[in-house]
């Protein structure tokens, strides 16, 4: 799920950035530091959309660095247990398949793939129904349900299932 929230961060800025462009420097450093990172609480920071407010800078003793408390608006992405998500399959093997939804890596074990889908080996390993009408292979798009999440400092892992109503392939690359 995406959220538009306000976060705060203390930015350390080198004295060489002081001057007319201080604000721009501060914002570009903030984007570099924050965008693409994860936090366990908020999830993956997709993009900074605006600066709410920059507080008074505090000069650090001894170093000359200045700390600014910055409040910024950003879009975060965090998967939740029970959430339905659309993802792209990145790898298919006999254990199940791996899929990605942006920064989130999802594993769907073959226990959680409908029983009528069977693993097929070959150049393009895939899970196929016995009548061959539905096929999950690399680059397929699937709709899945998250049943477990873990958010690390840099990565988000999820366990998913497609063994439920209205879940499974939504777009087959080989058909298109």
């Amino acid at each position: 799920m995406f959220f538009h929230i306000v976060l705060e961060r203390n930015m350390q800025l080198h004295p060489r950035h002081f001057g007319r462009n201080l604000r721009e420097n501060l914002v570009s450093k903030l984007m570099k530091d924050v965008e693409g990172t994860c936090s366990g609480r908020h999830g993956f920071v997709v993009a900074i959309t605006g600066i709410e407010n920059i507080g008074k800078g505090l000069i650090r003793d001894g170093t000359g660095f200045v700390t600014f408390p910055v409040k910024y608006q950003c879009v975060v992405f965090r998967p939740f247990k029970g959430e339905i998500l659309e993802a792209v399959v990145t790898m298919v093997n006999k254990m199940g398949f791996f899929a990605e939804a942006g920064p989130v890596q999802i594993f769907v074990s073959n226990h959680l793939i409908p029983d009528d889908m069977e693993f097929q080996i070959g150049d393009m390993p895939n899970y196929t129904t016995s009548d061959g009408s539905v096929k999950i292979q690399k680059d397929s798009e699937v709709r899945l349900k998250i049943i477990g999440t873990r958010v690390d400092a840099t990565e988000i892992f999820c366990i998913g299932t497609i063994k439920d109503d209205f879940l499974g392939v939504i777009n087959d690359p080989s058909a298109g």
């Binding site: 594993f107 477990g148 892992f157 366990i159």
Partner: peptide
């Protein structure tokens, strides 16, 4: 818990 992915069970999603 037949296996785990990122320290979560691949079957029930439990940590």
């Amino acid at each position: 818990h037949p296996g785990s992915f990122g320290d979560m069970c691949i079957l029930c999603g439990q940590r």
